Amino acid sequence: MLAERLSLSPCAILSFDRGGPTPLVCVCRFLRLEIYLCHCQCYADDAKLVPSSATDIDPHHIIDTVKHLERHRDWDEFRTVYRTGDGVVVKKIYDPEAALSEALNLAMIRSVTSIPIPELRRVVVDGSTTYLVMECIEGDSLKDRWPHLSLWSRLSVAWTLRGYVAQLRRLRRSVPGTLPGGRCNGPLFTEDGAGPFHSYSDMIAWFNHKLEVSQRMNQAPIHAPRFDSRSPLVFTHQDLCPRNVMLAHDGTLYLIDWEYAGFYPEWFEYTTMLRQTDLPISWRWMVPLIAGWFTNMARCVSNISWALSTGAMM
């Protein structure tokens, strides 16, 4: 796969401009990265370095504040997002590849769609830990608000999210995976992820191998349909659920947590939404409205569930 290597020095912003009215800007100050940008419709063809304007965020203050918050609360290893004041939240990520992917995803979505997302204001690196400094959305998680919404309000939320998914699906690429081309993670991959895949056929072969593993272990019907590449590869959030939707005080719906996002078959959004656990049935009823109907593919994914979990190493 053809790639372009960009070395980002400290105090720089990575900007991608495809001719639209708004440049795609990813703050990468105090960060040294090597980014491999594939040329196959990856929305990063015209990368350039421009001066940084985010001078009001001290990286040392961010690191110290997060460590202070961790010391003065009950330990929760699953909590990685901290509200530090000054209108920002900080997401702490231990995997540099995942941090790069989410930063680029936020920048791309903000540039080429009208989907409301938090503004990425700075990326701070401390050893192997990355801190994404983002705009704080004043509002409530949809997870907390959903039980109290009327049926009409729930339909309105679902219809808005349907529009967001439609925008994402207009972003397409010929090679599956993350924007920077790293390892694929999410509900439809094993705990350790998969790939990176160099072609669509490589990813389909991986899924069909998982199907064969499940069949050998009598965990899937012997004549179960195989995966194929008929569906286009579209940009997919892959973790679209109420906890990742913020309902702002002005009524705007924001999508957050873009770590798993990438270019995957069109049916991915539907099947990953259904694989979320502990969701109210009223939300599950809205999934087809939001992401379309892909019941056949949901059955295909169900056939490989054993191979994605218990048989992940096979």
Rank of each mutant, 00 (worst) to 15 (best):
L106S: 06
E97D: 15
S101H: 08
A99C: 10
L100G: 07
A103T: 05
V112N: 05
R79W: 02
R83K: 11
L106H: 11
N105K: 02
M108I: 09
G87P: 09
A107H: 03
V81L: 09
V112M: 10
G87A: 09
P96T: 14
N105P: 03
L100D: 05
P96C: 13
V81H: 02
F78K: 15
M108H: 02
L106V: 10
L106W: 06
L104G: 01
R110D: 14
I93T: 12
E97R: 13
I109S: 04
E77L: 07
E97C: 13
M108Y: 06
R83Q: 10
T84L: 13
K92A: 09
N105H: 06
A99Y: 09
Y82R: 00
V112P: 04
L100C: 10
Y94P: 03
G87W: 08
T80S: 10
G85M: 00
V88R: 08
L100Y: 07
K92E: 13
I109A: 03
E102K: 01
T84E: 08
P96Q: 14
G87Y: 08
V88F: 07
T80W: 03
K92D: 07
A99P: 08
D76T: 01
D86H: 15
D76F: 05
E102I: 00
V112E: 08
L104Q: 02
K91N: 08
V90K: 03
S111K: 04
V89T: 12
M108S: 03
G87Q: 09
M108Q: 05
V90A: 03
V89P: 05
R83W: 06
Y82C: 00
Y82V: 00
F78A: 12
E97Y: 12
R83T: 10
D86A: 15
I109Q: 01
T80K: 13
F78D: 14
F78T: 14
V89F: 10
D95Q: 14
D95Y: 11
V112W: 09
R79H: 09
E97P: 07
A107E: 04
V112G: 06
L106F: 10
R83I: 02
L104Y: 00
D86S: 14
V89L: 12
V89W: 07
N105T: 11
R79A: 06
R83M: 07
G85N: 01
V112F: 08
V112D: 05
S111V: 03
K91C: 02
V90Y: 01
R83Y: 12
F78N: 14
A98D: 14
A103Y: 03
K92C: 11
V90G: 03
Y94E: 15
Y94D: 14
L104F: 00
E77G: 07
T84N: 08
I93F: 05
R83G: 09
V90M: 06
I109M: 12
S101Q: 10
Y94T: 15
M108N: 04
F78W: 15
R79G: 04
F78L: 15
A107V: 03
R83C: 07
F78M: 12
E77F: 09
V90C: 06
R79L: 10
V90T: 06
M108A: 07
E77S: 12
E102F: 02
D95T: 12
E97V: 13
T84Y: 06
L100E: 06
R79S: 06
E102G: 01
V90S: 04
G85L: 00
N105V: 08
G85Q: 00
V81G: 02
